[in-house]
Amino acid sequence: MAGPFAFRNLAPKTKNLVVAGGLTAFVFGVYFYTMRAVGGTDELQTAINKLEEQRSKQEA
Rank of each mutant, 00 (worst) to 15 (best):
M1H: 12
M1P: 12
M1C: 06
M1S: 14
A2D: 14
G3Y: 06
P4F: 14
P4T: 11
P4V: 15
P4C: 09
F5T: 12
F5W: 14
A6G: 05
A6C: 03
F7S: 03
F7A: 09
R8D: 13
R8H: 10
L10V: 11
L10S: 11
A11T: 14
A11P: 05
P12D: 00
P12C: 02
K13C: 03
K13H: 11
K13S: 15
T14C: 02
T14K: 07
K15C: 07
K15Y: 06
N16V: 13
L17W: 09
L17M: 14
L17I: 12
V18W: 01
A20N: 11
A20T: 14
A20C: 06
G21Q: 01
G22R: 04
G22V: 10
L23V: 04
T24F: 04
T24C: 06
T24K: 04
T24H: 04
A25G: 10
F26I: 12
F26D: 02
V27E: 02
V27H: 00
F28K: 01
F28E: 06
F28R: 05
G29E: 12
G29P: 13
G29F: 07
G29N: 08
V30W: 00
V30T: 08
F32N: 00
F32V: 04
Y33R: 01
Y33N: 10
T34Y: 02
T34H: 07
T34N: 06
T34W: 02
M35K: 10
R36T: 15
R36I: 04
A37N: 15
A37W: 05
A37R: 14
A37T: 15
A37G: 10
V38D: 08
V38H: 03
V38I: 11
G39L: 03
G40T: 11
G40Y: 02
G40A: 13
G40K: 11
T41F: 06
T41P: 09
D42Y: 07
D42G: 07
D42N: 07
E43M: 10
E43I: 10
L44T: 14
Q45E: 04
T46A: 13
A47T: 06
A47Q: 03
A47F: 03
I48P: 08
I48Q: 10
I48S: 04
N49H: 03
N49T: 01
K50M: 05
L51N: 15
L51G: 05
E52Q: 12
E52D: 02
Q54E: 14
Q54K: 12
R55G: 03
R55P: 01
R55V: 12
R55H: 13
R55S: 00
S56P: 00
S56A: 15
S56G: 05
K57G: 05
K57E: 10
Q58Y: 09
Q58H: 06
Q58P: 07
Q58M: 11
Q58R: 09
E59N: 05
E59F: 05
